[in-house]
Lab assay of single mutants.
Amino acid sequence: MGFKLLSKLLVYLTASIMAIASPLAFSVDSSGEYPTVSEIPVGEVRLYQIADGVWSHIATQSFDGAVYPSNGLIVRDGDELLLIDTAWGAKNTAALLAEIEKQIGLPVTRAVSTHFHDDRVGGVDVLRAAGVATYASPSTRRLAEVEGNEIPTHSLEGLSSSGDAVRFGPVELFYPGAAHSTDNLIVYVPSASVLYGGCAIYELSRTSAGNVADADLAEWPTSIERIQQHYPEAQFVIPGHGLPGGLDLLKHTTNVVKAHTNRSVVE
């Protein structure tokens, strides 16, 4: 069995187990497998329904001669939608809004960016022009300005110390501490036991640490421990890039980060 097929099978099995364990909360999309990078042309966006009122959005972007996937989250909030992270750029984010209108038909009224990198804030200006209120932590807003990236308009308070959590509509926002970046936030959907790890969490097929220019490698494993301790009931975990899975993604990420750190020390 090929690795790609095995990865998709694991996603399907995880979703099936969740649907059985929580039949009222989960209505997993039966329309197909989780979209992969090879299936999404740059400039297009796919939506994948995880649970009743919960979707991931998947886009792709060219970077350094390669094409990478990027995940975000959409959560229903009454007759409105909360968006977590842009679709990595203005063109993708405009396509995301169009796809949401086509498939869901509810307005996106608020959006949260989970850290300051372009795959999370690139497209904020498109959201703002569409009347979406954009939010991020003060740290993310400051770092985005320093980096020359787009800056969300509103500040999220109460997320300055490791372990801080605040309720934001249908989700809980959690600051686990520094990891992929010093400002990275985690998003949890309690009604569906869905954990969105953003770039602080890796997919299972990833074996290298990737972009760690703004990471705190020493603190990252401790931050992941905080996530595990705060959300032990999480059933569906979405990484910032690639295929979702279960809580095993947290341990896998820790292993990859520690291996990278150990290699760096040896070198």
Rank of each mutant, 00 (worst) to 15 (best):
T93N: 06
V28N: 15
L204Y: 08
F3P: 03
F168I: 14
V45Q: 04
G123P: 02
N71L: 01
S162Y: 13
A59K: 05
V42G: 09
L217C: 06
F236R: 07
T114I: 00
E44H: 11
C199Y: 03
Q228L: 13
V121L: 04
P152N: 04
L156Q: 12
T14E: 10
R142M: 10
E172P: 02
I151Q: 05
A144D: 04
S62M: 04
P152D: 03
V75E: 02
Q61C: 06
L247I: 04
V112R: 02
A87I: 00
S223A: 10
V212L: 13
Y196D: 01
T134W: 03
L195E: 00
G169K: 04
L13V: 09
A87C: 01
R142D: 11
Y188R: 01
V257G: 02
S160K: 15
T153F: 15
A19H: 02
V121T: 11
A111G: 13
S191K: 08
R141F: 08
Y196Q: 03
L81V: 13
R141I: 07
G245F: 01
G242P: 02
T207N: 15
T114V: 00
A200T: 11
P244G: 14
K258F: 13
D248A: 07
K258H: 06
S223Y: 02
V132F: 02
E101S: 08
I74C: 03
G163A: 12
A136R: 03
S193K: 08
Q103V: 12
V126K: 13
A165P: 13
S137V: 10
G123R: 02
N71S: 06
R263E: 06
C199T: 01
D52A: 08
L9D: 07
S22E: 05
L143F: 15
L83V: 13
R226P: 04
V189M: 14
A133H: 13
W88T: 00
V212A: 08
G53A: 09
V256I: 06
T36H: 14
A66G: 06
K102D: 15
L173A: 04
Q229I: 09
G2W: 08
T14C: 09
H180K: 00
A15N: 05
T60R: 07
P244H: 15
H117C: 00
L173W: 01
L97N: 03
G53V: 09
P138A: 08
A51L: 08
I40A: 12
H117P: 00
E157N: 15
P190T: 13
P176T: 01
M1Y: 03
D85R: 00
P190F: 11
S38Y: 10
K91W: 12
S31D: 04
T254V: 09
S70A: 07
D52C: 03
D248G: 09
S155Q: 13
A178P: 12
S191C: 02
R120M: 08
L6T: 08
S160P: 12
A259V: 07
D216G: 11
V108D: 02
T109Y: 11
Y175L: 13
P176L: 02
P176H: 02
V166E: 10
D52S: 05
A21I: 05
Y135K: 00
H180Y: 03
E145A: 11
I201Y: 00
H117M: 00
A234M: 15
Y196F: 13
A218H: 11
K4N: 10
Q103S: 15
V237G: 01
V132D: 02
E101H: 15
A215H: 10
S208Y: 12
I84S: 01
T134L: 04
P35S: 11
I50C: 01
D214Y: 06
H117E: 00
L143T: 10
G131P: 03
L47K: 02
V132W: 02
G240F: 00
I104K: 00
P244M: 14
S181F: 00
G122Q: 06
Y34G: 09
R142Y: 10
V42P: 08
V45N: 06
A234Y: 03
G198W: 03
E33P: 04
G245N: 10
E150W: 09
D119A: 03
A165N: 15
R128A: 12
V146E: 12
T114G: 01
E219H: 15
D79H: 12
S56F: 04
K258A: 12
T93Y: 00
